[in-house]
Design a protein around this nucleic acid. Structure first.
Lengths: 355, 355
DNA sequence: CTGAAAGCGCTAACAG
DNA sequence: CTGTTAGCGCTTTCAG
């Protein structure tokens, strides 16, 4: 066995390669001349140890490069320190990136709370969307879930609630006002109201709305912010609204129709995707966004940030959402559990060249 | 105890709530009248059982809603069926979305192979970037890693190799040709060559290149595809190239300079972000992309897909990359391990209005 | 093909 | 404050 201990001095430790088996609690205990339990305490309840014992144990831990085996700890404590989150297939052809941005924030935030994020696939259209949750739950693979798609009369929340599975929703329980679970959401209506006020302040009077189909509660909510702002200034909204699917092509068509029928000088959209449709129409007609017609989107996607001349957009505070979600999660997993009510956050407006 | 067995008949099973403790192997065994080991075999080695025993056990498993406890299984088998992947903070203000799209594909693909994806934070600039890997490795929390940032003289690959940690890189080992680990990459040069040929076929002769700073191997590789295509037709490249940072502003400036100094009729860019910079310049000058000047980006981001009039872009086959990565991973984790060499995939060109 | 015994590495109880 | 005992739920020997 080659001796290279002369190099092992100093702050950088020469950790042994893990090729064989990692050190266990017993190894640390033996090296430190204490019992296994003491080592366990050194890690989980350091204040129970005498200072000198603690340092001695700590030294052995460092020297051996010991880290508690997750599986063993999980088995014993009946917790995995993993948060499950379902992720659907990438949405291409749209500007939707909220979920991706949220995942980033969630990963960062949950790390600080000692959790990791486990991603699982959102099952194809054929499969039962609950299957993934069920599997992870029954096998105790995750401690809790973050549920993100609360928009449709989605069964997840109700189902998880029935199974008493700990979860926090990003999105309020639209269909079920007496839901008792924790949730965090962003006030979309406040966002569109902000956007509309911004346009009104810029001197616009005829401001059109393009949202999603009427069965979308989210879109109807965002729409209400637009009407609220318009009515507050005594301006009419009739003939200025359109409801279409969330695609660029739909936004393009809807804006063309609205320009012909109602001559708006500005558009507020339920998504950046729809707003990009408006930009297409403006280009088709040789109009310049921000000069001839103002446009505001929703989500502050990368698209909004880089498209010329910059798309003004409502920005959801996803970092804050993640923080609130993790806080709620910690409550749920505490002993005894604390079921927080809902948390509503306020979006901001990222103003760019299009308005 | 309420009896509702009359409803429990049929295909939909009335699974008991998991509020208490999930059923264990022992519960299933008792209900089926066999030993625990037989139940374990029914799950892991079904062919060892007599058909009738198997069905009986299977029935009990279904009835109880049993799923093996992950922690226990992990402890015993020394495997977690988790793949770790580091994820950096969301890149805003750019069109970069390769990693997000890749994560989606990876999650889908690894599910089919029986793996879940564990995301961990890419540690702030201050912290040691290897810390996350080290921690997960030492605690045996993941079976393997997928490493995605091989661009800089990045220490991860070397470090993981030294520790004999199983991992597959998305990105070839640029700096270390004698690296022995598995990797999957996309031939960027072939992509830009494709893009340049496409522009040449459209009748362009003066085609400019905007790439990243010279120390980026990826960018230099992509650049070589452009020069190769140009030189193949006997066209000069001098004075037509620019190397800048990967930001919209840089792309904007670089394209403005190039238009003034070299009058190109088309641009090939190392990223969609830079290509968007070109679109900004064109707008500044009242030029229309796809009519006056052609532009091609790289990555086929959402931005490329929705920006008017559509940005032609080189598309990396990320779904395929994920498949190859998972295949390589399965090899690494097999007994005995199979270390695959590198796999190089070929990108395609998504042609849109900008060219 | 099925059953019994052992132990993966850890922590919750207690006893000293 | 430290050590002993037990067991989380599973799979891998090894006998029947």
């Amino acid at each position: 066995m080659p001796q290279s201990s002369e190099h092992a001095v100093g702050r950088v430790q020469a950790r042994p390669p893990l090729s064989v088996t990692p050190p266990t609690l017993a190894d640390v205990a033996e090296r430190a001349g204490v019992s296994r339990q003491t080592v366990s305490n050194a890690i989980n309840n350091p204040d129970l140890l005498r200072p000198d014992t603690l340092t001695r144990v700590q030294e052995s831990i460092d020297a051996l490069g010991y880290s508690p085996n997750r599986a063993a700890r999980n088995l014993r404590t009946r917790a995995s320190h993993l948060i499950g989150m379902r992720i659907g297939p990438a949405q291409e052809g749209t500007a939707n990136a909220t979920m991706d941005r949220f995942v980033h924030s969630l990963v960062e935030t949950s790390r600080e709370a000692g959790y990791h994020v486990l991603l699982f696939a959102g099952a194809g259209s054929s499969t039962n969307p609950l299957a993934g949750y069920d599997d992870l739950l029954r096998s105790t693979a995750v401690d809790a879930f973050v549920v993100t798609d609360t928009y449709l009369g989605n069964p997840q929340a109700t189902w998880l609630e029935e199974r008493r599975a700990p979860f926090v929703a990003f999105g309020r329980p639209w269909d079920n006002p007496q839901a008792r679970h924790s949730w965090v959401d962003v006030d979309g209506a406040a966002g569109t109201e902000l956007a509309t006020q911004h346009l009104l302040d810029k001197g616009h009077h005829r401001i059109a709305w393009i949202g999603w189909r009427k069965d979308s509660r989210i879109s109807e909510d965002r729409r209400s912010g637009w009407t609220r702002a318009m009515h507050a200034r005594g301006l009419p909204t009739t003939g200025l609204a359109s409801r279409v699917e969330d695609t660029v092509a739909s936004g393009r068509e809807a804006s063309a129709h609205l320009l012909d029928s109602a001559q708006p000088s500005a558009f507020v959209c339920a998504s950046d995707t729809l707003a990009m449709g408006v930009l297409h129409t403006l280009r088709d007609r040789g109009l310049r966004a921000g000069e001839h017609v103002a446009v505001v989107g929703f989500d502050d996607s990368q698209v909004a940030q880089v498209v010329p001349p910059g798309l003004t957009s409502v920005r959801q505070p996803l970092e804050q959402v993640a923080v609130e979600v993790v806080t709620a999660l910690e409550g749920l997993l505490a002993h005894p559990p604390v079921v927080g009510t809902g948390v509503m956050l306020v979006p901001t407006l990222a103003v760019r060249g299009s308005s």
